[in-house]
């Protein structure tokens, strides 16, 4: 579903991502963890087709992002960590805008948009301007718009930032259910408990290099930290 081959990104003299190779099959939730500045957001942006890699390829559902970016992006629901939203649009207008850009079927739009807004507890705010939303509400709206287009691949950067415990629980359950239904999820997070709870596999990135991948149990084994939690594994792997 997602294949990254030799993915590299350089910013001037700084190499943010170094030759990343990864395959994530359909229906898998892949957690991407690493310290600040490790290259997580740069990788996510390359996956979403927002920036071009210096070298290497991104392949989404068999489509090369560099060769056919529009076709590849059609498959992706993208949720950035600090999304820019048009403050003077209402929640419903924003969803309409997204749906139009993705060529989403107009006939079923209202029903599906309302269902998503209800799912993210935003239905009462459907016709309110986004400028009046809290950070968590904006985050929920971005999720609603990403899921509205029923993507085959979901790319999420820090999904839990700004969400309350109820919303975190809801998002965790939602991600698990989406994966069961066949959606491939690539998620970067700092919340190790979330990664441990929902991810089938986890990749650890440090200084732009993927230093370990596997299930939480595999990682514990690799870090020789059996019996300890993911935090201990993370600290051990990234401080080595």
């Amino acid at each position: 579903m997602i294949t990254l081959s030799g993915l590299t990104k350089r910013y001037g003299t700084i190499q943010a991502v170094k030759s990343l190779n990864l395959t994530i099959p359909k229906g898998e939730i892949f957690g991407f963890i690493g310290p600040n500045g490790a290259g997580k957001t740069t990788t996510i942006k390359m996956l979403g087709g927002i920036i071009a890699p210096t070298s290497g390829t991104v392949n989404i559902c068999g489509i090369d992002m560099a060769a056919e970016p529009e076709k590849a992006k059609q498959k992706i629901g993208f949720i950035p960590d600090r999304p820019y939203l048009y403050e003077k649009l209402t929640a419903m207008e924003f969803l309409q805008f997204t749906a139009d850009l993705y060529g989403f079927n107009r006939n079923g739009f209202i029903g599906k948009a309302e269902a998503r807004l209800k799912q993210f507890s935003l239905i009462d705010w459907a016709d309110e301007l986004i400028e009046s939303f809290s950070h968590g509400m904006k985050q929920r709206l971005v999720m609603a718009s990403a899921l509205l287009i029923e993507p085959e691949v979901l790319i999420v950067d820090e999904p839990m930032v700004g969400l309350d415990p109820i919303a975190i629980k809801m998002v965790k359950e939602l991600l698990t259910r989406l994966a069961e239904e066949g959606t491939t999820i690539f998620m970067s997070t700092h919340t190790l408990q979330v990664a441990e709870d929902v991810c089938h596999r986890i990749g650890v990135i440090n200084s732009g290099r993927l230093i370990a991948t596997g299930s939480p149990e595999d990682l514990m084994h690799q870090a020789d930290s059996t019996g300890k939690d993911l935090e201990a594994v993370f600290l051990k792997l990234t401080q080595e």
Partner: peptide
């Protein structure tokens, strides 16, 4: 513009 990431993530040709 600040909304460039948003619009470039959509399947609209550049």
């Amino acid at each position: 513009s600040r909304d460039l990431s948003l619009v470039h993530a959509t399947p609209v040709p550049a």
